[in-house]
Amino acid sequence: MDRRLGALAAALLAFTSTSALAQQVYKVGSSVGLTGYAAVNDRAWRDGLQLAAEAINAKGGVLGRKIELVVEDNRSEPQEAVVGYRKMMSNDQVQIFDSGCVSAGNFAAAGSVVRAQIPMMLCSILPQRPEEQKWAFSVLPPPRFEIEARYQHLKDKTDIRKVGILHDPTPYAMLMKDLGSKIAKDMGLEVVAVESYKQDDADVSVQIGRMNAAGAGAIVKMGQGGSTVTTAKNIKALGLDKMILMASLDDWATFRQAGEVLGERFLFVAPGVQIPDAIPAGSAKEAAESFLKVWRAKHGDRDPNAGARAWDSLMLIAAAAEKAKSLEGPAMRDALETLPSTQGAFAQFNFSPEQHVGITKNPFEIGVLRDGKFVALK
């Protein structure tokens, strides 16, 4: 009997010690595509979170607790994302999510996350259901900003008035595809062809050929990853020496390969952190340079785009915790809605009860690879 009591006491002591340790950290879960089509961007997202966590923890953490990141690879697949989210909620007991750019995965898991009343900060667009949007916050610029920046360049700087849209099946690209046709009309452009592809397609020559036959002078691509390089190579192989390829927000690794194929006929949308020389003096430049100093010290000349938004997202979470004076889900959700306007490394963020997409001013310039360097195309 005494042995049983001793074993029980030891077990209770171990449980108490574990519980006490758990209370000393603030667990932030992140579902990211460390493999699959989103890997380049989501690896940078994870690394930006880690740098932000280190910076916040060096100053004492949030409300006296150190941030502990819990990362699950969703392999860029919705089903894997659901499994990872459930694990982080049940096994790891995360208190908030700060997840990567796989929109479909974030959508698939949103229902169970909301039922647990856990806020979600996302690299992706918001889930579609209003009850899920209530608990989700996005640091991705609205898709229309990407489209408007590209169309404005065509309208102001070229004589191209007919474009083709090339998109993948992700929710983000599908949303941009629909917006692209509408916004074109408003800006005096004509979408003459809309073509789709899968992320692992090794050739999109047929789609490009149909757009060219329809009279498109530029391809407005909606989707990230290596498919952009495939598109650039196919344009060159088809001998379309006047066609312009305009890419979505993506990583330098992708931009460099496509730019080396098409030269200055390859254009892309870029935030200030990707082309910092284009940022005017002021608070935006100071915030970007502060982040870039930390990023470059750890990652050298690696692309800072996704890392900067991840850094900003965790800084916003830390600011919400200080505002709420609580780490409980509902209190954090309410605090995120009522944060004051905040200048981040990537952009200015303005959340409100009605506005859960934090970037409300277009942060994009049109970039180009020139003499081996990424610069704003003026």
Rank of each mutant, 00 (worst) to 15 (best):
Y37H: 13
L377N: 10
K27E: 13
A247W: 03
M222W: 09
E190R: 00
P171Q: 07
S17E: 13
A58R: 10
Q274M: 15
V83G: 04
F266R: 00
N362T: 04
R370V: 05
A10V: 13
E195S: 07
S138W: 10
A214F: 01
L369G: 09
E72W: 06
A281H: 06
L267I: 09
P127E: 02
K378Q: 13
Y37W: 11
A297N: 12
Y197W: 12
K162T: 03
E354D: 12
K177G: 07
V269L: 09
P130N: 05
S283A: 15
Q117G: 04
A318M: 01
D301Q: 15
E132S: 10
G344Y: 04
G223N: 02
A58T: 02
A193I: 00
Q224A: 15
R144N: 15
W252Q: 09
S352M: 03
G344W: 05
T170S: 15
V113E: 08
G217N: 07
S19R: 15
G48I: 04
F268D: 09
L13A: 15
G33M: 13
G48A: 11
G36I: 05
R3S: 15
D250Y: 09
A247P: 01
L249P: 08
A318R: 02
Q133K: 12
S313E: 01
F15C: 12
L8A: 14
S283I: 14
A237F: 04
V62M: 12
V40A: 15
S205N: 04
S76V: 01
L21N: 11
E146Q: 10
G188C: 12
L122I: 10
S352D: 07
I183P: 06
A258S: 12
V28R: 09
L316N: 02
A376Y: 03
K373F: 12
A288N: 13
Q50Y: 11
L189K: 00
V191Q: 00
I165C: 01
P141V: 03
